[in-house]
Simulated scan of single mutants.
Amino acid sequence: MPIDAAKAISAAPRSTELAWDHKDIQLYHLGIGAGAATPEKPHAATDPDELRYTLESALHVLPSFATVAGGGMALAGGLSAPGIEVDLAAVLHGGQTVTVHRTLPVRGRATQTSSVPAVYDKQKAAVIVLRSEVADDDGPLWTCDTQIFVRGEGGFGGERGPSARLELPDRAPDRTTERLIREDQALLYRLSGDWNPLHADPEFAKLAGFDRPILHGLCSYGVTLKAVVDTVLGGDVARVRSYTTRFAGVVFPGETLRIRMWEDEGRTQVSVTATDRDDAPVLADTVVEHG
């Protein structure tokens, strides 16, 4: 069968060299909507707070950039691990966590070490858990935990894995904001390294069961973290400690995301829905831990 769970889990960790500079960061930030007008910032392209994402002389790095550093090698590494051979049309991103050990530098060279700590059997699908640990000469930079959902590859008799869900607070959100996903958003975002044709090719999208191409889950992930940093953390990316989510539904380019935030000490819980489809869920079980 395409997935040999025992082989994938027992395989030796794989190392990959990563490198990035300000152009990669600026492209990523533009891909998640930096500089685009929002209800709070109608002239965002020249707003000083937005220039921290887009202008090289003022640049800081949103921690979710870790998911695409080096051209998105973390996800690619998971799909090329020993014992794993899957059809891209059957692949969806199930969940993502980024844990930050230090503020991400604007320019860097680092080593990524990847392993598959688990493969879960969901009967009608398999979930591949990939861990990528990244360090440079000064020590650890970040750890990414990625869950890759592969339709049609379950039923091999493995563990089902965790299924706990995080309930939303029983009160109104402290903040709510909306973000428009432009029609060309996926085309721009994929230049950061996720070349899956599901996000660009209408015919491929139909093979995968969608009427048209869908937005990358990690693009929604980045859009959401930026909204939390900008509205809750005063634009200070260095305050983010970790960021986790479960991808609960798809987004189509042209839709608007509604981002609800519940603040607590050192923690913001988030819910993201698509306003155009009666608040259909997009991101769930979502938490930003911060200082």
Rank of each mutant, 00 (worst) to 15 (best):
T103Q: 09
A81Y: 05
P253V: 15
T224V: 12
P162A: 01
G235F: 06
Y120V: 09
Q147C: 03
E50S: 03
Q269S: 11
L59Y: 07
L27F: 00
R212A: 15
G222K: 08
A45F: 11
D285G: 07
I3N: 02
T286V: 11
L188N: 08
G72Q: 08
G70L: 12
I84K: 04
A126H: 10
A34K: 08
V223K: 02
L233M: 13
G155H: 09
S10R: 02
S132T: 13
E289H: 09
F247I: 14
V251N: 09
R241A: 11
A81R: 03
E85V: 14
L75V: 14
L75D: 00
S114M: 10
F252S: 09
H216M: 11
T268K: 04
A238E: 15
L55C: 02
L92S: 07
L166D: 07
A36C: 05
D201T: 08
E153P: 02
V134E: 07
G108E: 08
S64W: 00
H216C: 09
V287E: 12
V288E: 00
V237H: 07
L283P: 14
R175N: 12
A74W: 02
L168A: 10
D137G: 09
L59I: 09
D138W: 04
P63T: 15
K206F: 06
A274W: 09
Y120I: 13
S220W: 00
A164G: 14
V223D: 01
F204G: 06
L27D: 01
W20P: 04
G95E: 13
A135F: 05
A227P: 15
E159K: 14
A11S: 10
L187V: 03
I181H: 01
E178F: 11
S242N: 08
M73A: 14
Y221G: 02
G72A: 03
T38D: 04
V251P: 01
G155C: 06
A110T: 06
T275I: 14
D276W: 08
S57Y: 07
R277Y: 13
G77Y: 08
W142E: 00
A36T: 06
H29A: 07
Q147D: 10
A34T: 02
L51I: 03
V240S: 03
L104W: 07
D184V: 11
G78S: 11
R212L: 06
T113F: 13
R246L: 15
A238K: 14
V61G: 01
T97Y: 08
L18S: 07
T231L: 12
R258S: 11
R171F: 00
Q96M: 01
I3D: 03
Q96S: 03
R260T: 10
P117H: 01
T97N: 05
H60G: 02
T16H: 07
D236F: 12
Y189D: 03
G108I: 08
V223Q: 05
G234A: 13
F156Q: 02
D236T: 13
H199N: 05
